[in-house]
Computed example of a mutant assay.
Amino acid sequence: MKYTGNVIKYGDNVDTDVIIPARYLNTSDHKELASHCMEDLDKTFVSRVQNGDIIAAGQNFGCGSSREHAPIAIKANGVSLVIAKSFARIFYRNAINIGLAIVECPAAAEEISEGDKVEADLDKGIIRNLTTGREYRTAPFPEFVQKIIENGGLMQSIANGSF
């Protein structure tokens, strides 16, 4: 699984309530959720995010509630990958369940800057900052996780008979 995109950068403890504010949880429409993604943290996110962009963030990304709405809102905006120093465990699992690629790589998350162009090969566990030329290593995804993400999520994987 390879991803290439421009980086949108956030800090530590980005919680699910700023990823998708609770006042919008009365819908399960992915486009509607996407339209409000990050609005309490970054009012420019929805207007500047491009299909394939990558979020880089600090520690504890996705802390807060256990709702799947947060990774759904991110993915529905076209974000292809989230790189963070660490993730809240339930967000990590929810992201994989809905088919959003995520990877913990503290060095990359720290050193990558807003607007950098990044390429990630998660099969090999390599992240390259194409802007600076820096390369980072991380653990590759296990094959079953790769399949879940490639299929668009856990439910699609089951429906496709991939398990």
Results as ranks from 00 to 15, higher is better:
Ile74Cys: 07
Tyr3Lys: 14
Ile126Val: 15
Val46Asp: 05
Val7Trp: 07
Arg23Asn: 11
Arg89Gln: 13
Leu122Asp: 00
Glu143Ala: 15
Thr138Ser: 14
Ala139Asn: 14
Asp17Trp: 11
Asp15Trp: 05
Asn97Met: 09
Tyr24His: 15
Ile158Trp: 10
Asn94Val: 01
Ile126Arg: 12
Met38Asp: 07
Asn60Phe: 04
His69Leu: 08
Asp17Asn: 15
Ser157Met: 13
Asn77Gln: 13
Ala95Arg: 06
Thr44Tyr: 02
Ile54Trp: 04
Asn26Met: 12
Gln156Tyr: 04
Ile20Pro: 08
Ala22Asn: 13
Ile20Gln: 07
Glu150Tyr: 02
Gly133Trp: 00
Val14Ala: 00
His30Ala: 15
Ser66Thr: 12
Gly64Trp: 09
Asn26Leu: 13
Gly99Ile: 08
Met155Ala: 13
Asp116Leu: 04
Ile112Gln: 03
Asn97Pro: 03
Gly115Asn: 11
Gly153Lys: 03
Tyr3Ser: 01
Tyr3Asn: 02
Thr44Gly: 06
Met155Lys: 08
Ser66Tyr: 09
Leu122Ile: 03
Asn6Tyr: 13
Ala101Ile: 02
Asp116Ala: 04
Ile83Ala: 05
Pro140Thr: 09
Asp15Met: 05
Pro106His: 12
Gly11Met: 06
Asn151Val: 00
Ile102Glu: 03
Phe45Cys: 04
Ala159Ile: 13
Thr132Ile: 06
Lys85His: 12
Ile19Ser: 10
Gly152Pro: 07
Phe87Glu: 04
Ser65Ile: 12
Ala95Ile: 01
Lys9Leu: 07
Ala70Gln: 09
Val118Asn: 00
Leu81Met: 07
Ala109Trp: 04
Gln50Lys: 15
Asp29Lys: 09
Ser66Pro: 03
Glu32Met: 12
Glu114Thr: 07
Ala159His: 12
Tyr92Phe: 15
Ile149Tyr: 03
Val103Phe: 02
Leu130Pro: 11
Ala159Met: 14
Leu154Asn: 01
Ile90Asn: 04
Gly78Ser: 11
Tyr3Glu: 03
Gly161Ser: 10
Ala34Gly: 11
